[in-house]
Design a protein around this nucleic acid. Structure first.
Length: 317
RNA sequence: CGCGGGGUAGAGCAGUCUGGUAGCUCGUCGGGCUCAUAACCCGGAGGUCAUGUGGUUCAAAUCCCAUCCCCGCAA
C-alpha cells in the first residue's frame, strides 16, 4: 500500500498526545493545522496553541488558517496533498471538500464511547454526570457532529474522585494508542467501520459559565461530580460571605452526618471545610479565593476567611 | 495601554484610610497533662513588613514616586 502522508488537525493538549504518538511512530506528517494564536491571559498576550509549540519543535510545517472554508485553504490542501487526515480536538467543523479530499479519509479521535457524548466536552460531561466508565472512539469523520462510522473503541474506568485532568490525561494517552492501532489496521487493509446507533446518541455541550456555579441545594454527590468534572479548568465556583468568588479545586463527599441549610459551613475540623448540601454534605479540600493562589482548606480557615456558620453561595444571584 | 486583588515569621491572614511597642490562626521547637493522641495546658524560636539603603517626616508596614513578581476576572 502507498505510504501514508498525514495531515494533522488539532489544537489543545489533548491533541498533543496523538500528534506526539504519530511523530514518534515515524509516520510522515506532511503538515499540522491548528487554531491561530489567540490573545490570552492578562494583558491579552498572544499565545500559541500547544500543538503549534510541539510541531515547531519537531520542525513540522504549521498552518493556522482562520477558516477552512475558503479558496486559500483548498489550495493549501492540494499543495500539501495528504492521503490521510487525522483530527483530534481541532476546534472547527471541517467542510465537505476537506473531508472528501484525502484518499483514506479523515479519522477523528473522540473522548467518549460513541454514540454517547458527541460534541465539545465529552470528558467533562461524563464526569459531571457521574459516569463510572468512559473511553475513546476512533471514527470516520463525516458532515454531522461526531456521527460517522466507528472504527475502534477503548474503555476507561472513572474513579469516584478522578477529576477532569486525570481523565483527560488518561484518555489522551489511550486516544493516541488507539489512533495508532486504527491507522495500522488501515494500512493492513483491515479497517472496518460500524455505524452508530443514533437512537442512543447523547450530546456533550460545551461548558458554559453558568455550568460552573455550585448549587448547594443539590446532592453532595452531584456537587462533587461537578467540581471534579471542572477541575483544574475552568473550576466550579461559589461565593464567600463577603461576596468574593471562591473556586473549588478538590472535594470529597463528606461522611459527616450534621445537616443545615444548604451552603452553610458545618465544620472546619480536620483541614476540611464541610458544607451542607440539599442532600448530604461536601468536604471542600482545595480552593482558590478571588485574587489569590490555590490553597488548602486549612489555609483558608487559618486566614480567618471562613468559619463555622458562614454561608457560601448566597450572592450567586 | 482590557478590569481588578495581592506581596508583612515556614503557611494563610490582620494591621495601611486616621504614620508612633510586629499582631492573629496554624506549623515548628521545648516542657506539662494523659493509657494515649492529630486533643488540651505552659513556654520559646522565627520578620531588613517585595525591591529601590528612593521621596516626605522628629518618626514610615502605614503617605508619595518608580520598578519587579504573584493571582482572579474578562477574552
Amino acid at each position: 500500500m502507498e505510504k501514508l502522508r498525514i495531515l494533522f488537525l488539532g489544537t489543545p493538549d489533548f491533541a498533543l498526545f496523538s500528534l506526539r504518538a504519530l511523530s514518534e511512530a515515524g509516520y510522515e506528517i506532511v503538515g499540522v493545522v491548528t487554531q491561530p494564536d489567540k490573545p490570552k491571559g492578562r494583558g491579552y498576550e498572544l499565545l500559541p496553541p500547544p500543538v503549534k509549540v510541539f510541531a515547531l519543535e519537531k520542525g513540522l510545517s504549521v498552518y493556522q488558517p482562520n477558516t477552512l472554508r475558503d479558496e486559500a485553504f483548498a489550495e493549501l490542501l492540494s499543495g500539501i496533498d495528504p492521503n490521510l487526515i487525522v483530527v483530534v480536538a481541532y476546534g472547527k467543523i471541517l467542510p465537505e471538500n476537506v473531508l472528501d479530499y484525502p484518499k483514506f479519509g479523515c479519522i477523528n479521535v473522540h473522548g467518549s464511547l460513541l454514540p454517547e457524548y458527541r460534541g465539545a466536552a465529552p470528558m467533562q460531561r461524563a464526569i459531571i454526570d457521574g459516569k463510572k466508565m468512559t473511553g475513546i472512539t476512533t471514527m470516520k469523520m463525516e458532515a454531522g457532529l461526531d456521527t460517522g462510522e466507528m472504527y475502534e473503541k477503548a474503555a476507561l474506568a472513572i474513579g469516584e474522585n478522578d477529576n477532569f485532568e486525570v481523565v483527560h490525561d488518561a484518555l489522551g494517552e489511550l486516544g493516541a494508542k488507539l489512533l495508532l492501532s486504527t491507522i495500522q489496521k488501515l494500512e493492513a487493509g483491515q479497517l472496518k467501520g460500524t455505524p452508530q446507533d443514533d437512537s442512543k446518541a447523547t450530546y456533550a455541550k460545551k461548558i458554559e459559565k453558568e455550568d460552573c456555579r455550585l448549587d448547594f441545594s443539590g446532592s453532595a454527590t452531584k456537587l462533587h461530580n461537578l467540581i471534579r468534572g471542572l477541575s483544574p479548568m475552568p473550576l466550579a465556583v461559589t461565593t464567600l460571605p463577603d461576596g468574593k468568588l471562591l473556586k473549588v479545586v478538590e472535594s470529597r463527599v463528606s461522611d459527616l452526618t450534621l445537616s443545615g441549610a444548604p451552603g452553610t459551613i458545618l465544620s472546619t475540623d480536620g483541614g476540611k471545610i464541610t458544607v451542607a448540601c440539599g442532600c448530604g454534605a461536601i468536604d471542600l479540600l482545595t480552593l482558590i479565593p478571588e485574587g489569590k493562589k490555590k490553597m488548602s482548606a486549612k489555609d483558608l480557615i487559618n486566614g480567618r476567611r471562613v468559619s463555622v456558620g458562614d454561608r457560601l453561595g448566597d450572592s450567586c444571584g
